[in-house]
């Protein structure tokens, strides 16, 4: 049983050397293992900042608050330590790293997170199976990390990493954006598999309710103006679907 708690989190985006702007204005949220929390909100409300701040992106700086994984403050950890502790971020815009092959990268990553190098043959079997589940062609393993991948291919590879790394909590930042319905189904199945596999806690950041037909949330939170403006059950998503975010945008203004 894992408890992931965000308490009073405030964070700035670092725009340039002497320019910054506060984006997160006190976020509180608790995710227990096995739970799925959908974070929904208008563009620019700070959803992605929340994701990046948790992972330790260099363009953001936490100014206040804490993020606890079973009582340990992950904000005191280096970026790679956070991942090894069991926090995973599926990025909205996965980064291309030229020249580093996907298979090399995944093996290094799995080795670091599991604390020992998997046997080559075993790992290659595991990788092939995981790729097949996500309808990723085996040829991708030899390509550079995300290099020249389409948006959908990048998202599938983020979920591939989720399945291989088996974190305790996953922050999925608009994993659904830019996917057609088929790809959305494949990616959603991957998320559900990961959850069934290891009782994963999921923070599902999305702008649209579409993915919620495939990944069922236990809780829905509306994010506005850098904080959670309202929380509820799955029915809140339906309200947002029919009414939009206007009410929250106004409330914040």
């Amino acid at each position: 049983m894992t408890k992931f708690e965000i308490r009073g989190l405030r964070a700035d985006v670092l725009i340039s050397e002497d320019e910054r702007q506060e984006i997160l204005k006190g976020v509180d949220l608790t995710i227990n293992s096995g739970e799925t929390h959908a974070i929904m909100g208008p563009n620019g409300s700070g959803k992605s900042t929340l994701a990046y701040a948790i992972a330790g992106h260099p363009r953001y700086e936490i100014t206040e608050g804490e993020v606890l994984l079973d009582g340990e403050n992950v904000l005191d950890m280096e970026v790679d330590e956070r991942a090894r502790a069991g926090v995973f971020l599926a990025m909205q815009y996965p980064v291309e790293v030229p020249g580093v092959s996907m298979s090399n990268f995944l093996r290094s990553s799995v080795t670091s997170v599991r604390g020992e190098a998997p046997k080559l043959r075993q790992f290659s079997k595991e990788l092939q199976g995981a790729m097949k589940n996500l309808s990723i062609d085996a040829a991708f393993a030899a390509r550079g990390v995300n290099e020249g991948f389409s948006g959908g291919e990048k998202k599938r590879h983020e979920i591939l990493q989720l399945e291989l790394l088996k974190p305790k909590v996953a922050v999925l930042d608009e994993t659904d954006s830019g996917l057609d319905v088929d790809a959305l189904k494949i990616v959603s199945e991957g998320i559900n598999r990961a959850q069934a596999d290891s009782d994963l806690g999921v923070m599902l950041i999305t702008h649209y309710t579409r993915i919620l037909n495939y990944v069922k949330p236990d809780f829905v939170h509306v994010f506005s103006e850098g904080r959670i403006a309202e929380s509820g059950g799955p029915e809140l998503a339906d309200v947002l679907e029919s009414e939009g975010y206007e009410r929250f945008a106004k409330a914040g203004a």
Binding site: A55, A83, V95, V97, G99, V100, S112, V145, Q161
Partner: peptide
């Protein structure tokens, strides 16, 4: 630093992430 961040966000320690990136840089 965004390349580094991406690799490190997958648990790869900084030193190794740097090594992977430099390897990739010179690979061609």
């Amino acid at each position: 630093d965004i390349h580094l961040f991406y690799l490190r966000s997958r648990g790869i320690p900084e030193e190794e992430a740097r090594r992977l990136i430099i390897r990739g840089y010179f690979l061609d």
